[in-house]
Design a binder for these strands. Structure first.
Lengths: 220, 220
DNA sequence: ATTTTTAGGTACAGTCATGTATCTTATTGC
DNA sequence: GCAATAAGATACATGACTGTACCTAAAAAT
């Protein structure tokens, strides 16, 4: 009953957008393992036939869908607040990770049956030509301004913030709060780039929330 | 045709072991989303009926299977080599993560459709009463000996090594080599506990191998 | 206005997994 | 040896998804 402008049959971009949205939502909900043409068609309120005219299987469709999605917001490093900018960039990452697109991408990457070709396609088509990861953009900015030793910005160091946040999400299944992001920046990222962690506002460590598990670990 | 000692029908522990192994292998191969009673029964070469006598669904079975598995090997911190012990503990983690049990557990944790109750059960039954995570065991040991400031060992810091290794595995889908583990220890873990990173043997950063993606990121 | 394109819808045969029921028989406990 | 237990095997109705065929009618192109 939505206003379709008198039209009763979607076509072209309208239809594609509906299909893409349906595919991403399905993938985010059940992962690639449970993604079916049938479910996508139902969610998009179209006929399965329409899908088969363009794609041969659900994953193929999903990759097109992800490639069409709006890109992730980029961190915009501010004037003179390395710590604050790092926290903000991690917040962007968390927000993205909990969007349907983010969930779908994570599900593909974590799929034990993942096809390397699919992962490659994901990188080439979805992540093509972006500036860098979240904290990476910020760290490079401040290195360029001479406030960080560029030699410190190794691949490992550029990944520290993202890795800890990702693990936290895996462990708890929930979005970390700002206190946790601040702890990551203060206790892991800043020491790694050779800056003294700023004096902690509260001497307490971040609340533990759930449990802490390792990718191959157990409660701390 | 295996030597069954003249017996033709498995029963009790023999049968259970075969079923558990089959369940874990299936879960490791396809993730919880593709885990079915049918596939487990086929792989264990038993009748589906036999499974239904004990379990009501595949996940229930899988949790029992994981609980029965041999525990992960524990890091054994040596005399006086913090750096080496940290690297060794991360190596243990990698080995575990690529075992069928490790893959199955990761697949459960990463499943977008994961049931919190299942995750809780996993922690209670599989990870119950273990000393701690991999680098955690080592770090606590050296803190106890007074070589690390215990106040530094926050939950975030105890997770750094595991988080980076986990992310690396997610990104590349392969087991990191020792150079990478050493880089993690030198560039992230040791700085976070307030120790100067040891002089790097080679001034080069670890080889990049594949790409580096963030949990919500793109190539670096 | 007429033709072309393509979305919407129905139908169908095939495959796979689910639960349940039923029967036979190997193994175990007494 | 005999009875109880439980594994192995087969069958069946049900439901989900697949891939294809086929038809219709709406929207766009001419």
């Amino acid at each position: 009953m939505a206003d379709t402008g008198g039209r009763t049959r979607r076509r072209g971009k309208d239809l594609l957008d509906a299909i893409y949205a349906a595919a991403v939502e399905e993938a985010a909900a059940g992962g690639p393992g449970r993604l079916t043409m049938d479910a996508i068609a139902k969610r998009a309120a179209t006929a399965r036939t329409t899908l088969y005219r363009r794609w041969s299987d659900p994953l193929d469709l999903l990759l097109d869908a992800l490639a069409e999605l709006h890109p992730v917001e980029q961190p915009a490093p501010g004037a003179d607040d390395l710590r604050g900018d790092l926290i903000a960039s991690l917040r962007l990452m968390v927000d993205w990770g909990f969007s349907p697109a983010g969930r779908a991408v994570l599900a593909i990457l974590a799929d034990p049956a993942r096809d390397p070709a699919v992962v490659d396609a994901l990188f080439e088509r979805v992540f093509a030509r972006r500036g860098g990861t979240f904290t990476q953009t910020v760290l490079r900015h401040y290195a360029h301004e001479g406030r960080i030793d560029p030699a410190r910005l190794t691949p490992v160091v550029l990944d520290i913030g993202e890795a800890l946040v990702a693990k936290r999400i895996m462990d708890t299944g929930e979005a970390p709060d700002d206190d946790y992001l601040a702890a990551v920046v203060d206790q892991a990222v800043l020491p790694a780039v050779g800056l003294p962690a700023e004096p902690p506002r509260h001497p307490r460590t971040p609340r533990r929330g759930g449990r802490t598990v390792t990718r191959g670990g157990e409660p701390a």
